[in-house]
Design a protein around this nucleic acid. Structure first.
Lengths: 201, 201
DNA sequence: TGGAGTTTCCTAAAGCCCTTAGGCAAGCGG
DNA sequence: CCGCTTGCCTAAGGGCTTTAGGAAACTCCA
């Protein structure tokens, strides 16, 4: 009988497609075997098991997302860079919901260290070079950026913003505007007031 | 043989405990049956199935979290309210990681509408009464708050902030400070600049 | 070209989980 | 005290994961 041409790489790619179509939690050896018209046990020659498969998909998606981020950041700085990078996250999550969910898979420390996670952090730090922040404030700001990007995209994906006005697109633009304003106007660490103490209104 | 005294409510509570101990995805009819020293099929008299069980736990956790938020908000306003409410989210997620994960379970529209989700949104709107924001900016700000709270807590839970200085506690405090500063200094909608056009540096 | 060897995929089987159907007995209401 | 409701049980079907071992397909070198 003809061989199906299985490969760890092909399994990962098919798994990523399956994740986008049916959800990351539906990515299982069984489902993948059906997709390749192959018996389940055959996958175990290429992949250690279900957990290994999911981990590989997560690493693949992290890498893909980091590549897109790097492309978006090239030649941009300041708010332009911030906006482009933010849109990469959101667009990726909307275009590839299963892959995006995969990037949230908890990895064991060794795997996480070898993943593209570090590239993501480095890119956020690079964006912050366009603003005037020194350590440790820069790290706090990196964490805030990560929180907003992931939080917004995640709430949007679970339908949180879809059933009320104004539209999510509009909120997203305003949220990015607000982040830019905040980074330009980052409050001083010790002082409870913001740097420009002129109460609004 | 003596009866175990099963009840939908008792199953939900035990399920919430199990989620906190082993993770929300480990909450299954089997695991719960073991915990009650009962055969799996016995649960089906009280709960429709695995999905129903998880949904009930999600609703329970949403309610519990909303109750804590309401208690924290009582008698507070402005940054005081913002900080207290933010800490409720973070503390709940740290204290009850499985329950917190449960609150992220996607609900079908009908269930979601009947959930405590609306209370959460209302409380965020209440916090924003302490700041000077009109619609639609208030809605954008609500979405930003939700994104930051969920995003931070979620990244922290998956270990994102644990292996680098400064500590997560410190970043959290600065993130809340920054949010407060941002809400007091919310950028004007149409203008690309912030309301106090004095380029930093 | 024709094996030897490796790789790919298969069958078989064990273990766990979810779910439904139908039965027996415990405990409550009259 | 007896019938009835209800709670928990056994039985069984079907799916997913994983391991063990076999047979066919490809490769490559003599």
């Amino acid at each position: 009988m003809a061989r199906a041409g299985l490969t760890a790489q092909r399994l990962v790619e098919a798994g990523a497609e399956l994740a986008d179509e049916a959800g990351f939690e539906q990515v299982t050896p069984s489902a993948l075997a059906r997709r390749f018209n192959v018996r389940v046990a055959s996958l175990y020659a290429h992949v250690k098991g279900a957990q290994d498969l999911r981990t590989r998909i997560a690493l693949f998606a992290l890498e893909e997302l980091a590549d897109r981020g790097a492309a978006a950041l090239a030649g941009r700085a300041g708010k332009d860079a911030l906006t482009a990078f933010a849109n990469v996250y959101r667009d990726y999550a909307r275009e590839h919901p299963g892959r995006y969910a995969a990037t949230r898979l908890p990895l064991d420390p060794g795997t996480a260290a070898a993943s593209a996670g570090g590239r993501h952090a480095a890119m956020m730090r690079a964006i912050l070079r366009g603003y005037d922040l020194d350590e440790p404030e820069r790290t706090h700001a990196v964490r805030l950026l990560g929180s907003v990007f992931h939080g917004y995209v995640s709430l949007e994906a679970s339908g949180g913003f879809s059933h009320s006005a104004p539209g999510s697109q509009e909120s997203w633009a305003r949220v990015v505007d607000a982040l830019d304003a905040l980074l330009r106007n980052w409050p001083a660490p010790d002082h409870p007031d913001e740097p420009h103490p002129r109460p609004r209104q």
